[in-house]
Design a protein around this nucleic acid. Structure first.
Lengths: 139, 139
DNA sequence: TTGAATGCAAAGTGTTTGCACGTGC
DNA sequence: GCACGTGCAAACACTTTGCATTCAA
């Protein structure tokens, strides 16, 4: 139905052992769902593999994050959200009241970076820009 | 020894009931300690009020955050850090390996903002910019 | 005096881990 | 076949909560 996840191919190439569970998690993330929690991934993966466990979901998500295929997004409260949209630069807008989370791509922030001296010797992997406020419903 | 916390005055003006515990927490945050955890605040506050409880520390920190006097900083793992430096615009640099946390004030990022349309009707309170990477020790 | 703040401990939430069993390569 | 992945449940780290007691104003 959806596109046949090139994600899985990439993972196999990296030596990933492809199991039904991992495939299910990858498929959930390949869909259009933008910011899912581990529980939501579990719930959706269960429609394909009813016996998949939360531990496996966490394991898999953790590996995907480590491989740079998925981004962790933490709002002020509540569980971590996983964002499979790593290939389009974007930032986040989060409601401190209800936790609503939106993508934003403000103009003029794309080139946020650190000069050599400012990096304090760090190897920078990524920059996370989060706008906090209250959404129309909560304000 | 340090400056006599105008923070407390500000809080009293806002109708805060000033208790020894709250004073102790405020004093910890008035010091030069940049990014403290709730436990560290407890530990330091105990040197003044040995019987202060963790619950009170959390209560007080939560109120200070709600009042905008303290900022919450969440690294990838571990407990929330509290940053009393709200009056100088700055961003954070965090090591994804060991959790080390540094302040940075990169040039050219000060005016990060959202245009009306981009805000999606949100009332923006603040912007949080976090650079993630590995520190010299971990890289 | 009196409502707000405190301390304690128990409950909660989200995530990680240990280990026996199962399975992709 | 064997190392790696899985499911389960218990452990875990951090934070919040309920309630009787204390105390700042």
């Amino acid at each position: 139905m959806t596109t046949p996840a090139p994600l899985l191919d990439r993972l196999r190439d990296r030596g990933w052992r492809v199991t039904p569970q991992r495939r299910a998690v990858a498929e959930v993330l390949t869909g259009e769902h933008v910011h899912v929690t581990a529980d939501e991934v579990l719930e959706r993966a269960r429609t394909v593999i009813p016996e998949i466990s939360l531990a496996t979901v966490y394991n898999t998500l953790g590996e995907l994050v480590a491989m740079g295929e998925v981004l962790e997004v933490r709002a002020s409260r509540g569980p971590v959200r996983y964002d499979p949209n790593v290939h389009t630069a974007h930032h986040h807008l989060v409601c401190t009241e209800c936790g609503k989370l939106l993508d934003v791509t403000p103009t003029g922030v794309e080139n946020v970076g650190l000069s050599g001296a400012e990096a304090h010797g760090f190897v920078i992997d990524d920059v996370d820009v989060t706008f906090r406020g209250r959404c129309p419903d909560c304000a």
